[in-house]
């Protein structure tokens, strides 16, 4: 059995607001992630999936509960856990190469070696030709490739991805899915991947953590047992996608009912199938 890499125990996060009761972003989240596992956090907006990722990253602090990485509590951000954000966040004044070298130079890697490793990683994301380009000269997909190279070049144990492909067009996203899958299999990193795209989660993950809202937390966890590399038309995946979609719809309906009034129904006159696929047998 692979060792537990990240352990979240009863993690609770509240945001204090002026003149309001505090908002509970995460309520009692317990989750453990194995070394080398690819876990997606999936859910509608407001379910606290990004907050959870930020807590693991050390960018935010949990209100209560504990978070262990390699059985040690974390102290703030660290370069063993690097985040790739939705917007690439490349430094606009640095060339692509300098951007990729940034993390290495912080780790005091000698300049020459840093340059070689950065160029090597730019080759891996197929951007070797663009080493001396400036970020604004690249397309959205290329920027995300640079962001991924910049994160992985420092050889972190954990890669945290916060909707990294959400702003890209469908074709680019599909290509990057395949590339990320390949990079993950080659490097064996532990990846936590935040997304609201079910297909993306299904195609990439070992496990999918479906999250709920109000209060934010874990609703269900789905293991994905399909061989890699995957195609989204794989029947196991299609089936899983539908199961998740059903649960997500329940969640959405709950949210909309709260927001728009209790008589709201997402669908009318449909036969409800519960997540375990038993239609009324438990009556």
């Amino acid at each position: 059995m692979a060792e537990e890499h990240i352990i979240l125990q009863n993690v609770h996060k509240e945001f204090q607001r002026k003149d309001h009761a505090p908002t509970i972003a995460l309520d009692d989240v317990t989750l453990s992630i194995k070394k080398g596992e690819f876990v997606s956090l999936l859910g509608p907006s407001g379910c606290g999936k990004s907050t959870l990722l930020n807590i693991v990253a050390g960018l935010e602090k949990e209100t209560s509960g504990s978070l262990l990485v390699n059985n040690k509590p974390i102290k703030g951000p660290g370069n063993d856990r690097i985040v790739v954000f939705q917007e690439s966040g490349l430094f606009p004044w640095m060339s692509v190469l300098d951007n990729v070298m940034y993390g290495l130079l912080i780790k005091k890697v000698p300049k020459q070696e840093a340059k070689e490793r950065a160029l090597d990683w730019l080759q891996k994301v197929h951007l070797g030709k663009f080493a001396h380009a400036l970020p604004h000269e690249l397309s959205g997909g290329m920027k995300q490739r640079v962001a991924i190279a910049r994160a992985l070049v420092t050889d972190p144990e954990i890669l945290l991805m916060d909707e990294p492909f959400a702003a890209l067009d469908e074709q680019t996203r599909m290509v990057l899915h395949m590339e990320l899958d390949k990079l993950w299999r080659e490097t064996g990193k532990t990846i936590i991947f935040v997304t609201h795209n079910i297909r993306e989660a299904v195609v990439l993950s070992d496990r999918i953590v479906l999250m709920k809202t109000r209060p934010g937390g874990i609703k269900n966890i789905f293991p994905v047992q399909a061989a890699r590399p995957r195609t989204s038309s794989d029947s196991i995946l299609v089936h899983l996608e539908n199961r998740i979609l059903t649960e997500l719809e329940q969640e959405m309906e709950k949210v909309l009912k709260e927001e728009l009034g209790s008589d709201y129904a997402l669908k009318t006159d449909d036969l409800r199938v519960d997540p375990n696929n038993n239609m009324g047998s438990d009556i």
Binding site: A57, P77, G78, N79, I82, G89, F91, Y102, I106, T154
Partner: peptide, 9 residues
């Protein structure tokens, strides 16, 4: 940009 930099240490 600050978050990116701090996540890299």
């Amino acid at each position: 940009l600050i978050r990116v930099a701090s996540t890299m240490g």
